[in-house]
Design a protein around this nucleic acid. Sequence first.
RNA 1: GUGGGUGUAGCUCAGCUGGUAGAGCAUCGCGUUGUGGUCGCGAGGGUCGCGGGUUCAAGUCCCGUCACUCACCCCA
Length: 464
Amino acid sequence: MASKVTPISGFQEWLPAQRIAEQHFLDTIREVFELHGFASINTRAVEPVDRLSNQGEDADKEIYGVSRLAGDDSSEASLGLHFDLTVPFARYTLEHSGKLTFPFRRYQIQQAWRGERPQRGRYREFTQADIDIVDANELPSHYEAELLLVIADVFSRLPVGDYRIHVNNRKICQGFYQGIGIEDVIGTLRIVDKLDKVGDDGVTKLLLAAGCTRPQVDQCLALAQICTADSTFVDQVQALGVHNDTLEEGLAHLKSIIDTANEHAPGVAVADLRIARGLDYYTGTVYETMLEREPSYGSICSGGRYDALASDGKRTYPGVGISIGVSRLLGLLIGEEGLSASRETPSVVLVAVNHEDSRPESMRVAAALRARGIPTLVSPKAAKFGKQIQFADRRGIPYVWFPGSEADSPAAIHAPSTGTGDELDATGTGDQVKDIRSGDQVSADRDTWTPPTADLHPTIAFPE
RNA sequence: GUGGGUGUAGCUCAGCUGGUAGAGCAUCGCGUUGUGGUCGCGAGGGUCGCGGGUUCAAGUCCCGUCACUCACCCCA
């Protein structure tokens, strides 16, 4: 039955060349995560709804439920697709706590689902690349700087352009707000978080409406304005004259992170005291990462420290984690800016087929090349050589191999004169390989010929 | 969930105050059984999102619905 196919909003799908670019990102992320000693885990797509749903009332609306279309499954536990990787990881940590070795550092690259209205940079199905470190009972704060450096290492190997990791510590806001007599810390954070969208005036109105006094509002705004690439933010906060132990603790932590980051990855981190993050479970350091060329696109890498996400009653497992929003990042780079691969197939060589009768010989050539790690495809038809070259060209395959073991082979008959003729096999019966970009065609040995390293695998680049 | 915009070929779109569905690009074929890209000729491909209404006649007007899209909410 033919039915019209239509796209489903909020689900990202790439064409083959774009997928190659995506895989390059995923491979690089994985490689760097492993380089920094993170072990991979994969968690199931579903969690019991009651475990997912107590993260805040708004989150509930976004959870996709999972059930059988037919049949009476009223006796089954209610399941939902996870909407991030942190909550499943917390559950995983508790479930396997007896078999894990702490501090446990894991990476997890999986999809997550949120049933919200899609928009630019926001999807209903999306891939996240998470790293987290959890420990039992206590978690040293130096990990909070370490995660930032891992992300800096990842992005240094990818064509993401200039970016900044904005770091804050919730204790700064919490201590500061309490120090000036504001009780609703979370609510105040949420309002201050809108600074980008509604501006000073908008935030002022909202805070006044929430019951803050004028001096409190001014202090909140003054704190939120502070944003420094070095540890001078400490002096700026202290100049505001608020005294609170929690505040001092937060300042010391953040200073330590910024100093460490500046030593190992200069220019990447910035202390930005307006960063709040929506999720309630963060208790200390929080991160958001913006691209310099388009900060309004939103954070492409976020996370933070959480002290009590996982607890079995006897022990709590504090952790710190950060997550690359792969789908959001690629939605911009691939979807809008045109990042793609140099070809739409991994094949670097197309082996021509002279006649259908000689296909076995072409297959032997392909086998010899593949045995040496050269991705190779055999031509689908013994069409005219122009067609076979075109087949390669359309897919971006740079080399066409002409098997030459037969007397009437095209390599013997049709080798073009290149002036010197030296590179042609004197007998005219050997294999030849043609670089279809330059037109150069030379004799080649299927057991030793290797394409230039730059051609062996597709490369990724933005359009000119 | 609330509000605005848009639905015509694979893609980008034209189609006037109603009169038998079009272009460009892409795809495929042909241009002396052999070395492509240019060029020439040709072909395929559309329940005009879906349903109803008005009319002799609806892609076009009206109503509904669905999808996509943008903003709000919230977040990677």
